[in-house]
């Protein structure tokens, strides 16, 4: 396996004709064969970044190379290696599933290969629908068709721009399974998502982009440890003045005038630490009316990242 990144983005900026600066300065390397999740709030510039790499949007400055080929000067080499599933559903309503994937394969310069197309359609549970017109399919099925189109020319890099937005649980699971299979076959996958669980489930590395700048790129494991906090709140029967010394093992705090006991812990520890805590509370005869847990949302994470960053710059 080559150590050279399969995708190298340097000094990339994009200012749209409207004057809006969608990308401030992006430097990013994607490793061969990894699953990379790009996270960021609405308008962060995720789609802009992907569209530049794929040739849909022209960059203002900077360079992008795919497997060592420049996306502008050697676009045939770069584009034939890339498959894109865009964020918006856009399909040719009047075509059949089969003709549309055959079209995609040809468009990307590949000789016909019905066996490959059959495999792609079977993998996506579309084989039975191959003769159906796309307009007769459900939204989830149309999304599968778009994935099939992106895979028709056997790309080495697959971009999935919010693949699971508006998708039911089953399709989401199917999609995750497919992504894993593709990765096993050597395909590099870059996906964007708003769901931290999804990034957690899928990615090897996670990048967070905020207002057109990557503010963090890290291995998933390290990041989850850093960011994946959960919070348990216990609504007490009787208010407490201070946290009993017997509960010193847990990071606890009293909130709301001593009526609530709050426990903050790392995601993944709920199976061990929380039951222990609850057991201990019962032993100590501390009664509670209600309890709830909350996972730090992506929003919280962005906020904390951004404020950390601003703190660092100040």
């Amino acid at each position: 396996m080559s150590m050279q990144p399969i995708l190298k983005i340097s000094d990339l900026t994009k200012t749209y004709a409207s004057g809006l600066q969608a990308l401030k300065r992006v430097d990013l390397d994607i490793r061969r064969g990894e699953i990379f999740a790009l996270l960021g709030p609405n308008g962060a510039g995720k789609t802009t970044l992907i569209n530049i790499v794929c040739g849909i949007v022209t960059p203002s400055t900077g360079t992008v190379t795919v497997d060592g080929h420049d996306i502008r000067h050697d676009y045939r080499a770069t584009r034939s290696r890339i498959g894109l599933v865009p964020q918006e559903l856009a399909t040719d309503s009047f075509e059949t599933v089969w003709t549309t994937v055959r079209f995609s394969r040809g468009l990307f310069g590949c000789p016909p290969n019905p066996a490959h197309l059959e495999k792609v359609l079977r993998d996506l549970s579309l084989w039975d629908k191959r003769k159906d017109r796309i307009m007769t399919l459900s939204g989830g099925m149309k999304r599968r068709v778009m994935i099939a189109k992106a895979l028709a020319h056997e790309p080495q890099i697959l971009f999935l721009d919010e693949p699971t937005a508006g998708v039911d649980v089953e399709l989401r699971r199917d999609m995750w399974a497919l992504v894993r299979r593709l990765r096993e076959s050597g395909v590099t996958i870059i996906l964007t998502t708003h769901y931290i669980e999804e990034a957690e489930e899928m990615a090897d590395r996670i990048g967070v982009i905020h207002k057109g700048e990557p503010i963090l790129v890290e291995e998933k494991a390290a990041l989850m440890k850093k960011l994946g906090r959960k919070q348990l709140t216990l609504h007490l029967q009787a208010p407490m003045a201070e946290v009993p010394a017997a509960l010193a093992d847990w990071r606890l705090a009293l909130k709301n005038g001593g009526q609530e006991l709050e426990y903050v812990f790392e995601a993944g520890r709920e199976h061990t630490d929380v039951p222990r805590l609850l057991k201990r509370l019962i032993e100590l005869d501390i009664a509670f009316k209600d309890l709830n847990t909350r996972q730090s949302s992506l929003e919280d994470i962005f906020v904390s990242l951004v404020s950390e960053r601003q703190g660092a710059q100040a």
């Binding site: 045939r76 034939s80 856009a90 399909t91 990307f108």
Partner: peptide
């Protein structure tokens, strides 16, 4: 109009 142009723009077609 339909947005399917994305595919043409991202294809290795001169």
């Amino acid at each position: 109009f339909t947005g399917t142009i994305y595919e043409l723009l991202s294809a290795p077609v001169s």
